[in-house]
Design a protein around this nucleic acid. Sequence first.
DNA 1: ATATTTAATGGCATATTATGCCTTTAATAT
DNA 2: ATATTAAAGGCATAATATGCCATTAAATAT
Lengths: 159, 159
Amino acid sequence: MNLDGYDRRILEALQEDGRLSNQDLADRIGLSPSPCLRRVRRLEEAGLIGAYRAVLNARALGLNLMAFIQISMDRHTPERFENFERHVGDYPEVLECHLITGQSADYLLKVIVADMDGFQALLLNKITRIDGVTGVHSSFVMKSPVSKTSLPLLSSQNA
Amino acid sequence: MNLDGYDRRILEALQEDGRLSNQDLADRIGLSPSPCLRRVRRLEEAGLIGAYRAVLNARALGLNLMAFIQISMDRHTPERFENFERHVGDYPEVLECHLITGQSADYLLKVIVADMDGFQALLLNKITRIDGVTGVHSSFVMKSPVSKTSLPLLSSQNA
DNA sequence: ATATTTAATGGCATATTATGCCTTTAATAT
DNA sequence: ATATTAAAGGCATAATATGCCATTAAATAT
């Protein structure tokens, strides 16, 4: 799909404020509401806009402990991996699970819990009980000076 | 702030679909539109809802390479840290920067770029040039079977 | 248990916004 | 220059948000 300057500005604006009204958005990007809305719908249908989400404040919800967990598996068989991915996908504390390159781990998990008790419960009762999990290395987040959701829109490519 | 069942259901619904109309939301949680909207505004003002965002599809935007970069610093002085955080905050490719515990690194960065050329440019021209950066270890993401934005709303606590 | 106070809900009228259709403008190729 | 295509703008209608008021429900004290 080809993006022009209007499309890029629409994406930029909606990444910042996903509840912008179409009229405000149209004003901001310099189009009238009709074509602006048509473009937004087109971007949604093309899958460029995948979803709209409310971003909640973890602290305010009592979720005070974020951690990254590096996981090593015993065997690198598809069954092991599928099983692991299915399980971690079911745990609401696991926000992200990435299969990564590198010598020291197969997976990197980003998790969020209320406190160290919650972390312990997650690690001991859930994650380490999944078949094939051998190594586990946890890093706790003390501070997150950067936490963006906006993807960089390479202003290169296209007119 | 105290959350009851209605509030939690509002948060859950808006985490899933941040553009739900107030009328649909009201239907879904079992309130009429007026009190529903009042609750949403209250949650926004209390900071529980921090923002509304459109979530874009990285692949569709040509951002095909995600990586995690572990960074070690030479000295752990406030100036070093502040300087580093300011710089990485200015790079649009850096989506997250976390100060973490652990022996092997001080920071964990999550970055996204178009391809390996983009990664090289980011690493060599930007990140490794920041004062104090000594060790750098990169892991590339092959697959992300879990990638949620929804925080777990511990249905415990409160009525 | 009853009265009193408080807080939150539901309904309604108005203002704002979204949406579909049609016309007009701009760009491209012949 | 003319024909053709694609996108923009304008307008009427439908849907939605919003503020105010009456009502109901809940909590507290007597």
